[in-house]
Design a protein around this nucleic acid. Structure first.
Lengths: 346, 346
DNA sequence: TTGTACGCGTTATCAT
DNA sequence: ATGATAACGCGTACAA
């Protein structure tokens, strides 16, 4: 079909305006037009004025592709994510996009959907588009295979590369776990339990390690006698809490490995008529706003500062593009979000 | 700092390999190399073989920028979103990215963060990059100002353009509301109430209109005597449910305007010991998996098919780029997701 | 201060 | 079937 849009009559297919048109209208050569628009000093003020005016009049917009051909810089970067759906990619992506946006560089978004073939495919396309650099955002906080030697710098975010020569940016899960327990201790809790997700996730083990570490420092034992590994789901939060309460009714605080799990924990505590935080304090992980802020009561939690991680990735990539390539793994500190679920005992 | 990465010695700054290198290695002219690689018929099989092999050996990757200069097509499109944070943009964006990915076109992601200035800024950048087209993804399902006449086709997704000459793709909120109530009726419910979000959202009013319409068809009155407009939050879901139960204890089903609200509804129903779905059925809206699938019980809901909307936007944009520009507003039908919160009364 | 001429990497048109 | 050569739109060394 194709209804012709616009009410204007059939204008001749208006060629996109080039620098030649501007130069012509201004009555100068292409070279001077270029210099004038690019703020080169060797051009008379009045001439520059003429050119600028002409450019505006024609609403000239320089062809970045042509510029890139010359400068050998496309002014673009690739954002290669493994799962857009996952909630962790988004903030990172936002941070990066934000950091780049304030500069001149545009961002190619590619979602590999966890598929290796698709990833290679996107990689080829990006290199063919001559991106100046690449940020690879993983789906889970465990090491992923390096992309190997590429003609452009690469930063790995969230999932570190398995090659220590690459530069990776990750969250500090050990520190986060420790921070959560520290917060509970400072609020007078002594019988602290830990319910968390899939033990095959490094994040789960790291958070637990941090938590246990902090408990040990304080000479406290873990309530419930074990770390309750399971699934990253509300359902597991419910199930584990029931088991926990049965095994150890003296528990006065629960550190949940994710906000989802924490919601399940809250649900069962309500069912058992155990006041939160009066009787049991609860702290989550992720600061997933929709879950944490709207919980009853609002949930204290650990924020991994993913947006900052994204921004930092952008900065590191810039540095690498400018020749300052780094390597190793850089860790971003988490942040405590205090809400009502851990208010002090009165 | 900048630790030099890689363990290989200081290789000379390896120039990116061009078609010339390939031609040279294959012992042919640049022109023939080009033809060979592009599958032109006028080239001997053995020659083509040579060239292809040379290209592989050098892992040649054609410079898309240069190609674009000639073909006047960049093979890129812009995805201009108003709020990446918002959960609605993501699935649309995924659908579009997916549809494009299977073709040759790459996607520029731009987040305007609801800021008009930033939007113009991104727009300039995208046009300067010679994108072949644009998809504008709004933050809320109400009309937004048109970008006006641009040198490339534009598709508006989720938020329709206020200019009927533009092509907009939106979800069917009236149909969704009607579908939700229909489902409840089919399962024997007669005392149906509706709790929803901010009345300034067209989506809220449309869903309510669809619900009321379906009730009217059936000769049923709305339980609770009114549509409970409020906020798109769990807290409002709780508050409204309490008021509703007070005003009309006979209610046997609640249609919530969002899954968030539905979660609040469920919470209060549990507190009041009203079995779901035994005593009261609950249906949400959005199919926001994390909220709906993990609710207790799992929540029936309406899915707006946003990913499909994104894919369709990509297809329509392709058509427009190929000259088949459309206009007006196209509506994507929603889809009912049945879970346990609306299981039939036994 | 301005203009000429060349090149960026590729495709397309013409000879050969 | 192959190879010069001219574009594409722009930046820049060099000459004027």
């Amino acid at each position: 079909m194709g209804v012709p849009s616009g009410s204007d009559g059939d204008q001749p297919p208006t060629r996109t305006v080039t620098l030649r048109d501007v130069a012509q209208l201004a009555g100068v050569s292409i070279a001077t037009a270029s210099k004038a628009l690019n703020g080169q000093p060797q051009v008379r003020a009045t001439t520059r004025e003429k050119v600028v005016r002409a450019a505006e009049q024609l609403s000239f917009s320089p062809n970045t592709l042509a510029q890139g051909l010359i400068t050998q810089r496309s002014g673009t970067v690739g954002l290669l994510t493994s799962d857009l759906e996952g909630r962790f990619s988004i903030p990172i992506l936002m941070g990066a996009e934000d950091a780049f946006g304030s500069d001149q560089t545009s961002v190619f978004l590619c979602d590999a959907r966890g598929d290796n073939v698709r990833e290679r495919h996107h990689l080829r396309a990006l290199l063919s588009r001559r991106v100046d650099g690449l940020i690879v955002v993983g789906a889970r906080p465990d090491a992923r295979p390096s992309l190997g030697d590429l003609p452009v710098p690469v930063i790995y975010a969230y999932s570190p590369s398995d090659d220590p020569n690459d530069l990776s940016l990750v969250t500090d899960n050990v520190g986060g776990g420790s921070m959560a327990v520290d917060h509970l201790i400072r609020h007078g809790r002594r019988r602290i339990a830990h319910i968390t997700g899939d033990a095959t996730y490094g994040a789960a083990r790291d958070r637990a390690a941090g938590a246990l570490d902090r408990l040990r420092q304080e000479g406290l034992a873990l309530a419930g006698d074990q770390v309750w590994y399971g699934a990253w789901s509300e359902a597991w939060g419910r199930g584990a809490t029931r088991m926990l309460l049965q095994r150890d009714p003296t528990v006065d605080a629960i550190f949940a490995g994710s906000d989802e799990i924490a919601r399940g924990v809250l649900d069962v505590l309500h069912q058992e008529d155990l006041d939160v935080p009066g009787r049991v304090a609860v702290i989550g992980f992720d600061n997933w706003n929709i879950l944490a802020a709207n919980a009853r009561p609002p949930l204290s939690t650990i924020d991994m500062n993913l947006e900052q991680l994204g921004r930092l990735a952008a900065q590191r990539l810039f540095a690498a593009i400018d020749g300052n390539v780094g390597s190793g793994t850089e860790t971003i500190p988490p942040r405590l979000i205090t809400r009502e679920s851990t208010a002090p005992l009165d």
